[in-house]
Design a protein around this nucleic acid. Structure first.
Length: 465
RNA sequence: GUCCCUAUCGUCUAGCCUGGCCCAGGACACCGCCCUUUCACGGCGGCGACGGGGGUUCGAAUCCCCCUGGGGACGCCA
């Protein structure tokens, strides 16, 4: 057990998105690798926007990805007393003060500053006032003046320095008495003993303020590792308009969690020329040193490729279980079809996602085959009558439907009909599956079984044009 | 606008710290060929990048500077 303590701290204002999942994953991997502790904290200080529904969605997604936490979830909304106490401490020590400026005034000043090309910062109006008007107030943290810059050494980006005149007195407590993000994140990370903060790039600018807060509160400053953002194909920050950004949306689209994990980790991290990593590999091989510093573009195509890899190589029993809901979503009755594992095995190398697999498996579970228009027109023609008759006659003779028996039967059929294999297989495929693309014809026959197969061939004869 | 970060094929990246092994390697996508009962899988091959300009050096993708591009932050959101 090492003393590494990391955390993932999402705010429950929506689903777990791709970017969040990746930072959660990085945290998880490092914790497991160093036998440290992975804490999950729910940042719900914004009472207005936080919902239990979002918390559940985030928990579900982490569960799906296999990112179990060691501690938590801890809710910040349960800890308001602690935060108030710390705010009071800062006020008592003269490190924070009440500010009576209204948000309207602040907005106006900010806008004016922007317009003049100045950095929009708080002008310190209330910083030195000694009166205590009977009016709503926020509490601001007094920017320390004992030095004029703050530096931290980012584990991914290296040393980063901010001049204090870029900073201002930030609000740590709102008018309604609730604490703000920059304060609580510091208190919680410190109180929870977090010694390495791995989070999104977008927090770099908050970090110097937080360092100052750690110092003001007498806490040890943790290490930081800021991971780059994920962008869409247009190099803009990844958002809904680029497609699905919710992790669980990918589950619904038929992606496997191991593919998502593999994809996410490779976006911005590499290990030589290797592409395929299991969670166990990652726990062994992941390191912050190999995380890139630049933002990366989310590439659904590569995710798909990884997914087909995992579908192809995955355990059929497991995939069979996963496939059921996708089949049911198509309104298919999975109870009176062929053996599900056998079905999966015929489809593994031809399906990119579980949705595709369900599409490809549909014919196994339908009583009445609906023929594709073109397929029917091309292959279910009147001249196929003899062929199908021979097919029925010879297949009837097979005692078992296995590859060896079927091959023997087809040898006879080819001889009797004087047709090449392809000329027989395609019409038969249409009869059996309704279309021209399917798993190997022997496998289809075998999985369907003698009774169903013959029944379908006979039905096709009736449908001959 | 100001500040912070960043920059190798279309995309993810190796290489950069410790200059020469790199007229830059792998993967996805794309194209072609092969395999083949369909669709796929697979195999083989191809296309394709060091953003620009200055330095330093015998020699730079690798070190330094400038420019440009991209991202982020600037909230009583997190």
């Amino acid at each position: 057990m090492s003393d590494l303590r990391v955390r993932f701290a999402p705010s429950p204002t929506g689903y777990l998105h791709i970017g969040g999942a990746r930072t959660a994953l990085f945290n998880y991997l490092l914790a497991k690798q160093q036998q440290g502790t992975f804490v999950l904290r729910i940042e719900d200080t914004d009472v207005e926007r936080s919902t239990q529904e979002s918390v559940d969605a985030i928990l579900d997604a982490m569960d799906w990805l296999g990112l179990a936490c060691d501690e938590g979830p801890i809710y910040q909304s349960d800890r308001f007393d602690l935060y108030r106490q710390k705010v009071q401490q800062l006020i008592d020590e003269g490190k924070a003060y009440r500010c009576y400026c209204t948000s309207e005034e602040l907005d106006a000043k900010r806008e004016a500053a922007m317009k003049e090309g100045r950095k929009p910062k708080y002008d310190g109006t209330c910083r030195d006032r000694s009166d205590q008007p009977d009016a709503p107030y926020v509490v601001r943290f007094k920017l320390p003046t004992d030095r004029d810059e703050t530096t931290f050494d980012d584990r991914i980006k290296g040393p980063i320095t901010f001049k204090h005149d870029e900073l201002d007195d930030l609000i740590i407590q709102r008018t309604d008495g609730t604490p703000t993000y920059n304060l609580v994140v510091v208190i919680d990370d410190a109180e929870m003993g977090i010694n390495l903060v791995i989070r999104g790039d977008d927090h770099v600018n908050n970090t110097p303020r937080q360092v100052l807060l750690y110092e003001a509160l007498g806490y040890a400053v943790p290490e930081f590792a800021h991971v780059p953002m994920i962008l869409g194909a247009d190099k803009k920050r990844l958002s809904k308009r680029h497609g699905a950004t919710s992790v669980m949306a990918y589950q619904e689209m038929g992606f496997l969690p191991e593919a998502m994990v593999n994809y996410l980790v490779r976006l911005g991290w590499s290990f030589g020329d290797e592409e395929i990593f299991s969670m166990a590999d990652l726990i062994e091989k992941f390191s912050l040193e190999n995380v890139g510093r630049a933002a990366g573009v989310f590439n659904p195509e590569k995710l798909l490729w990884l997914n087909s890899h995992y579908v192809k190589t995955g355990d059929a029993e497991r995939l069979a279980k996963l496939l059921v809901p996708f089949l049911e979503a198509k309104g298919l009755n999975v109870n009176d079809g062929p053996d599900m594992v056998a079905v999966v095995k015929t489809l593994q190398e031809r399906a990119g996602t579980m949705v595709e697999m369900a599409d490809g498996a549909a014919f196994y579970f339908t009583d009445v085959i609906e023929y594709e228009e073109k397929a029917k027109a091309k292959f279910l023609t009147a001249d196929k009558k003899d062929l199908f008759a021979t097919l029925v006659a010879e297949l009837e003779k097979c005692e078992v439907f296995n590859e060896a028996a079927l091959e023997a039967a087809f040898a006879v059929i080819m001889e009797k009909t004087e047709l090449k294999f392809g000329k027989i297989a395609q019409p038969l495929r249409v009869a059996l599956t309704g279309g021209t693309a399917s798993p190997s014809i022997y496998h289809v026959l075998e999985v369907l079984g003698k009774d169903v197969a013959l029944q379908r061939i006979k039905a096709a004869v009736t449908a001959l044009a």
